[in-house]
Write a protein that binds this DNA or RNA. Structure first.
Lengths: 140, 140
DNA sequence: CTACGAGCTAGAGCGAGGTCTAGATCAAGC
DNA sequence: GCTTGATCTAGACCTCGCTCTAGCTCGTAG
């Protein structure tokens, strides 16, 4: 069997799906939406052939999505990269803005964690005391 | 003007919206969906009157939502509380499960932050060097 | 040659989580 | 009484981010 690697490291959509965790549907969707930096190459028969660079970009996309970047921003970022050198300041602004949102999100999650830990503690203590507390306060 | 406080601390839907950050639409939606512990009291004229306990519950809901708990889980939690004492172990399980998701999420976000910081650093350095680097790598 | 799985396109569909509208009612101030 | 603004209900509608379908083509193994 001829592996992907023997063809100069170009991957099929299915292989890319495996490596990125995105579905093949999602990969086609991302491409349609203009989230990729360049158009994906095709075989003579019309099948997509992804380069390692495409895959790296997709892996970055996945990380940015995981951290809550909307597709619209990702698209904007892709457009900037597509335009080539000269707009690095814009790209940096975009990333900085996102980084701040990520940090705010981490903060918020840590607060939630505290609240949850506290509530879980209330229940755990209640259970340890043998359910006799009559804990009937919706907020308790 | 008769304030909310003069009426035994009961609040109108608008006041609750202000205090919780939820819209009045969302408040009615949450109620319809069974996310509240009890039915909200009404005035003679049919307007909702929220007690401080209702508000506290909603504030918890907001925190849990912020940390990514789906409405379905929130509903489940509300049902458990509605059933009264005796199922504290179930409530604890639900909270523990969520806490683990929150911690995984914090982990993931911190990884994203690292990636973003690294990429932002690449751009910043590039800019500092005066844009002469020819930084034309989609992943750079 | 045939079969069969992977890929193709265009476009419909879906689940989550609200948001908004229409048309009526309530309540406070003048 | 009249006006004005907040609320009421039921239900339609919306955005986001995919996901799935139909009907066809490609390409590799047997």
């Amino acid at each position: 069997m001829e592996t992907a690697e023997t063809r100069a490291e170009q991957l099929s959509i299915g292989e890319v799906a495996e490596r990125t965790g995105l579905s093949v549907h999602a990969l086609r969707f991302y491409e349609r939406e203009g989230l990729l930096v360049g158009p994906v190459q095709r075989t003579a028969g019309g099948r997509r052939r992804y380069t390692p660079v495409d895959v790296d970009w997709l892996l970055i996309c996945v990380k940015l999505r995981e951290s809550g970047m909307p597709l619209a921003d990702l698209k904007h970022f892709a457009e900037l990269v597509r335009l080539g050198p000269g707009n690095e300041a814009d790209r940096l602004r975009l990333l900085d803005a996102h980084q701040q949102r990520v940090e705010a999100q981490i903060q918020a999650l840590e607060e939630c964690r505290t609240l949850i830990a506290w509530k879980a503690g209330v229940y755990a203590e209640h259970l340890a005391r043998g359910e006799a507390g009559g804990l009937w306060d919706p907020t308790g």
